[in-house]
Write a protein that binds this DNA or RNA. Structure first.
Lengths: 224, 224
DNA sequence: CGCATGGTTCGGCCTCCATCGAAGTATTCT
DNA sequence: AGAATACTTCGATGGAGGCCGAACCATGCG
């Protein structure tokens, strides 16, 4: 009976279906109100409220009160990473749904992971950026390469505007089992993709769907 | 209420304190028996057995039957990664009691594995014995070499007294991931080590701690 | 063969917690 | 101010699951 950080407490928070659905919904990165989360989780409002306060107490969520709305969001990238890790295991051991389904396919290719892009395209992008020495993998960390600032400035992304969070972080991708780019840089790139309308977000889903020209543009800029 | 991989199911497996303790114990990489895990988790053997079958069913554990022991281990690196991610969040959220303890280090170097020696020293010993052709690795089996009988007789071990069990067997060492020596010969060697007081067993632990002169003697006899 | 030991299964107890309806607080709209 | 909306708290209920002792299999030892 060894003691350590209370992993059971955290895991059991995620271990309730209603709460898991809520967290899943919040993985989209946008904060949601209590009512929306109740709907998402398929429970009544009082029940949802109870769950939300438990998640708050557990430190997994943050809340922002705006008027009579309370917007709940994930507490941070670390929490998002944990959810992704659990999802990966569930996917690997889970009873493998017979029909993959078109949405799952789209999710595999590109999806939102908290505030940045995940999926095959995101993994490919990180690979290419490391290949071109714009980013540098250092053991398990990712750092900016010498040409990073100028390269990203050229496409309208300033890598030094948000110094509070690490600029780059690796985030394990559950569908590909390899890392994609997180951190403020990852978030900025997702912003750019959506701002340029290269892709749109599937409604009520984390899937990100590129338009044909948008995909071309993305490949030219990040994979070229 | 969206559908996806059943993350709640996996998380709730980790969400029980007893199971979390077991998984934590298995994070060291060494497979453990049901009894050891029961002790580790602070529950009775039947309770532990129930937890273990749930973890098995959930795909988080693998089991290797060796004789009347069943060694449970984590199902793979992905599971370990998930535990680590959860641990990270738990540590960030709830401070924080950590004592590394000298036991883990000692366990790595030398410990009891059922009735024989395991750990780095045991792996080194088997390597050396094979090197000197006293034992012969044949595929996955280990056989006695030509000089084995005389060599072990010289140090007071008769390799032919207990014919019912295989004299030599390979046993996978979970800390080093290489084989060490099991079978009656392995057991006899551990007996000798303890009888000669070259080492003592740590109380309530599998760790085996050599005294300085004991270690010298061991190295002279088995590694020289 | 019979005994000892590691492990699992079974049955019953008991606690915990998810759930919802109803009532209570806060904020905005008119 | 009064009504409507967003959310939380309270109380009661019911079901799920953790727990252990005892009995039951399996393997190894003499």
């Amino acid at each position: 009976m060894r003691e350590g950080p209370d992993i059971a407490r955290i895991a059991s928070l995620v271990g309730d279906p209603a709460r898991a659905n809520m967290l899943n919904a919040l993985m989209g990165g946008t904060a949601l109100t209590a009512s929306e989360l109740a709907l998402e989780a398929g429970v009544s409002l009082p029940t949802a409220s109870s769950h939300l306060s438990k998640l708050m107490e557990g430190g997994l969520l943050t809340v922002a009160s705006q008027g009579r709305h309370r917007y709940y969001g994930l507490a941070g990238p670390q929490v998002a990473g944990m959810i992704e890790a659990i999802t990966g295991v569930a996917e690997a051991v889970g009873p493998k749904r017979v029909r993959p389904g078109p949405r799952d396919g789209a999710m595999r290719i590109a999806r939102v992971c908290y505030d940045h892009l995940a999926g095959e395209q995101a993994v490919a992008m990180l690979d290419r950026l490391v290949d071109k020495n714009i980013l540098v993998r250092d053991d398990k960390e990712i750092r900016l390469g010498p040409s990073a600032a100028s390269h990203f400035a050229a496409i309208g992304i300033d890598v030094y505007t948000k110094p509070r969070r690490p600029v780059c972080r690796a985030c394990l991708d559950w569908s590909v089992r390899r890392s994609h780019l997180a951190g403020t840089l990852g978030a900025a790139i997702l912003d750019k993709i959506l701002a340029e309308k290269w892709a749109r977000r599937e409604k009520d889903s984390r899937a990100v769907i590129f338009s044909p020209p948008g995909k071309q543009a993305f490949e030219r800029v990040f994979l070229g």
